[in-house]
């Protein structure tokens, strides 16, 4: 079985005396927490934040946020940005928190990611951008990322592909990540990226949204567009015209040649004409 947890209880240790910074019995002063600049979640849905505020107002924060200590005065947030925001809106003074020991920046990002991914909470683009950060800034391979976040390597590679989408399409995916009626999905995104050409991607994107095309239909269109990339070569047209001309000169009648449909069509004007043409062809046989 894949290790879905990624990080175990050993990450949740701390023995330092932190009372100075206001860490008392698992609660920490809200003003002592700085947020993570590499936070993978970029988009905060206002509606779901409002909901969280309501629930915290009623029941309090049930799941402690995760922080690490950065110096004698401050903590840095690892996971729980929404809860922290909600707490700030409610003007709470303290929030429940785990202090996590984090050795490196990679680990910090990883933890933030794992938190969100495991709750299935990031939209496709945020996830892709987070992987991209792990890949470029910290030089992790797809395989390494896969192992750390507990997903398959192909899944990571496929998600990373989404980075290549034009910005407007990324924005649309982010904005509509909670809207199940929005016709453009991750599946569509992967499919249109096969096109590579920005105009074609944009044109097809507009059609998907406007005509509510299915992923299946999108695949068909992508195939069709790619097929058009090699239109009947100008050269074959040239050759065919040459062949048609030389044949019609010999036979003194209209001749059609089609390489794609594989035929040579010889026209005749009358029965007499037909006999004449057949004679020419027959006589040419030695």
């Amino acid at each position: 079985m894949n290790n879905r947890l990624g990080k175990g209880i050993e990450a949740l240790i701390n023995s330092k005396n932190l009372d100075d910074r206001g860490y008392i019995d698992g609660f920490v002063n809200i003003n002592k927490i700085k947020t993570n600049p590499n936070q993978p979640r970029k988009y905060f849905n206002q509606k779901s934040l409002d909901k969280l505020v309501e629930s915290i107002k009623e029941k309090g924060i049930l799941q402690p946020i995760a922080i690490k200590s950065i110096d004698d005065d401050y903590f840095e947030l690892i996971a729980g940005e929404r809860r922290l925001r909600a707490a700030k809106i409610l003007k709470l003074e303290t929030v429940p928190a785990y202090i996590i020991k984090v050795d490196s920046e990679v680990e910090k990002l990883e933890l933030a990611l794992i938190e969100n991914i495991q709750r299935n909470d990031l939209n496709a683009i945020e996830e892709a951008e987070a992987y991209n950060l792990l890949k470029n800034k910290y030089n992790l391979t797809h395989k390494e990322i896969a192992k750390r976040v507990g997903k398959s390597r192909t899944e990571i590679t496929r998600t990373l592909e989404l980075i290549k989408l034009p910005n407007n399409i990324k924005d649309a995916l982010i904005e509509n990540s909670n809207d199940s009626t929005f016709p453009f999905t991750r599946g569509h995104a992967r499919t249109i990226l096969i096109l590579k050409d920005s105009i074609k991607i944009q044109a097809l994107y507009q059609r998907i949204v406007k005509e509510k095309l299915s992923v299946r239909k999108t695949e068909q269109l992508v195939k069709k567009v790619n097929k058009n990339l090699t239109p009947p070569e100008r050269k074959t047209i040239k050759n065919i015209l040459k062949e048609e001309n030389s044949l019609s000169r010999v036979l003194a009648t209209k001749v059609e040649v089609s390489s794609s449909r594989k035929y040579i069509k010889i026209h005749f004007k009358s029965e007499k004409d037909k006999v004449r043409i057949i004679d020419i062809i027959a006589s040419s046989k030695k």
């Binding site: 050409d197 920005s198 105009i199 074609k200 044109a203 507009q206 059609r207 406007k210 005509e211 567009v225 058009n228």
Partner: peptide, 23 residues
């Protein structure tokens, strides 16, 4: 054409032209 009928042959042709020119 891209707003009027994006699935038409004319739309396909002009899309191909635009990408050929950009290329």
């Amino acid at each position: 054409i891209l707003l009027y009928d994006a699935s038409s042959v004319g739309a396909q042709n002009y899309m191909e032209l635009a990408s050929e020119i950009l290329e």
